[in-house]
Amino acid sequence: MDIIVCVKQIPDPEIPPSKFKLDIESKKVVPPEGIPPVMNPYDEQAVELALRLKDKYGGKITVLTLGSEATSSIAKHALAMGADEGIVITNKAFEDSDSFSKAYILSQAIKKVGDYDLVLCGRQAADWDEGLVGSIIAENLGLPLVTLAEAVDVANGKLKVKRVILDGYQVFTVPIPAVVTVSNEVGRPRLPSGWGIISASQKQIPVWSVDDIEADSSKTGASAARRKLVKLFIPERERKCEIIERETTAEASIELVDTLIKAGAI
């Protein structure tokens, strides 16, 4: 089965909140020095899901990432995990493009890649937490879509997709090819092996420009954006914590119950 996985590079989403900084004026996040950006964790899980399918059915995995040339490092990471090919698509106006233009560019790139049975995206990118691009790609390509997948298998020439819901799961079948967005329930992505990293580091990552994929530039960048960011800010904390300190932890624990009773919480 030939699979295309869309992967995005984002600032490390698990940095301690104290290291999270904004530039209010430019409405941008200040990348924390010394903490390199990472592959969106859901996309890493999408790569993992693709690899499981490849382990079972064979085929080729192509990884697409839209960003700057620097994002080739995450394509390399996917190759090190076991993907076969990585492609970076660059667009000068990438940062200012909205989800619709990003999805448009990725759709064009997917068309250029050509043969595929499945397109995988993450359920959402953990920077802007939208969860749009995968769905819009499906709409653009006219393909069936299943979101929030935990597992994918093949049965009777169709895809069988297990979708996570809050209190259980659903099982869908869709014809091939299809778009599936992947949720964290897939589980831990595999670590790249030593030889995986070595072979990935020797592979070339082709860089496609917007022209290479025959994208109409009037549909990308800030001028094509369907909405505008008016403000980005760090919310104020509303709570002030009263730390209960006593000679011993036991005394503090007893005191806590009394405090909670006084506060009307129990």
Partner: peptide, 27 residues
């Protein structure tokens, strides 16, 4: 060849001679 994101976990021995490293589960 630069392999980033790879940690050398141990040495590989051939008798008393160092014969490489172990990294990322590989020799």
């Amino acid at each position: 060849i630069l392999a980033s994101g790879l940690q050398a976990d141990d040495l590989l021995w051939d008798g008393n001679r160092v014969a490489g490293i172990k990294a990322g589960g590989d020799e």
